[in-house]
Structure formats: C-alpha cells, structure tokens
Amino acid sequence: MAIEVNGTTIETDEEGYLTNLEEWSPELAELMAQEDDLELTENHWEVINFLREYYEEYQIAPAIRVLTKQIGKRFGKEKGNSKYLYELFPYGPAKQACRYAGLPKPTGCV
C-alpha cells in the first residue's frame, strides 16, 4: 500500500503503518487523519509529538497503559485517561496515534 503526499509516494504496510519511519511528516499525519474523517487539533498533536519523542528515546511505541500514564504525567490528570484518548483517537489511541506519528504498531496491539 502507499500514500501520496506532495507528489511523493510513501509506502505503508497492509494496516497503514509506514514501512520507512524516516518518511514521516506532519502533512502525512494530516492526510491519514483525513482518511479517518478526523481533523487533528492541538490535543492530537500533543499525543503525536509525545509518541515521536518516546519512540526516539526508547525505540519502541508505548502500549496503551504506558501511553495513558505518561500523557497524564506530562499534560495533567484530565488528559491521562483512556476516555480522553479514545475521544481523540476513536480507533484505539495507541494504534491510531502511532500510525499518525509514523511509528510501528505498538507491541501488544492486535
């Protein structure tokens, strides 16, 4: 599979995750969100940017429990819960947000 961004073809696996993490861009994230009928807000970007930083540091995408806990630590208790994260990413906060962030599918996600 592939996604077209600004005249460049970007390869993805069958679930829509990037095959080359270096090809990620904010425009790509916006395009993926549009395909899911979502408009990325500042709150979405907090999670996406957090995931990218986390991956850079640990070389792994966090599972949902870790994501929820870390978001709560960084952005406050009202954002560190799965209800809030599911409102932002209805197809599963860890899976959908990682896809938008250009990261591999989180471990433990089916």
Rank of each mutant, 00 (worst) to 15 (best):
79 K>V: 13
59 Q>T: 09
103 L>D: 01
26 P>C: 10
47 V>R: 05
99 R>D: 01
91 Y>V: 01
44 H>Y: 04
16 G>N: 10
38 L>E: 05
46 E>N: 14
51 L>A: 09
36 D>M: 03
63 A>V: 08
4 E>V: 14
84 Y>S: 02
80 G>E: 09
70 Q>P: 00
49 N>P: 02
110 V>I: 04
39 E>Y: 02
25 S>C: 08
81 N>I: 10
35 E>F: 00
81 N>E: 10
4 E>F: 13
38 L>V: 07
81 N>H: 13
63 A>T: 10
7 G>R: 13
91 Y>S: 12
85 L>A: 01
89 F>I: 10
15 E>N: 12
105 K>Q: 11
20 N>P: 00
39 E>V: 11
7 G>H: 15
64 I>K: 15
75 F>N: 03
72 G>Q: 06
17 Y>T: 05
7 G>V: 14
99 R>M: 09
38 L>Y: 00
76 G>D: 06
95 K>E: 07
101 A>I: 00
95 K>D: 06
7 G>D: 09
39 E>G: 03
26 P>G: 10
77 K>E: 13
10 I>N: 04
10 I>R: 06
30 E>T: 14
108 G>T: 13
37 D>N: 12
84 Y>F: 15
74 R>S: 06
63 A>I: 14
102 G>C: 03
50 F>M: 06
33 A>Q: 05
64 I>F: 07
19 T>C: 03
17 Y>W: 05
7 G>T: 15
4 E>P: 00
22 E>L: 08
70 Q>D: 12
90 P>Y: 12
24 W>T: 09
23 E>K: 15
13 D>S: 09
1 M>R: 14
4 E>C: 12
81 N>A: 12
33 A>N: 05
26 P>S: 08
105 K>Y: 04
11 E>I: 10
76 G>F: 09
45 W>N: 02
73 K>Y: 13
99 R>G: 01
92 G>F: 04
79 K>A: 13
21 L>C: 04
46 E>Q: 10
13 D>L: 08
67 L>F: 14
76 G>P: 10
64 I>S: 08
57 E>W: 02
18 L>H: 07
57 E>P: 00
55 Y>N: 03
34 Q>M: 07
73 K>V: 11
94 A>K: 04
78 E>D: 12
92 G>I: 06
44 H>R: 06
37 D>Q: 03
27 E>N: 11
32 M>F: 11
15 E>F: 15
55 Y>K: 00
92 G>R: 02
1 M>D: 07
92 G>T: 07
45 W>Q: 06
46 E>P: 00
107 T>R: 12
53 E>F: 00
93 P>A: 15
98 C>E: 03
9 T>Y: 08
32 M>W: 05
86 Y>K: 15
96 Q>E: 15
44 H>L: 05
96 Q>N: 07
8 T>A: 14
22 E>S: 13
90 P>C: 06
24 W>S: 00
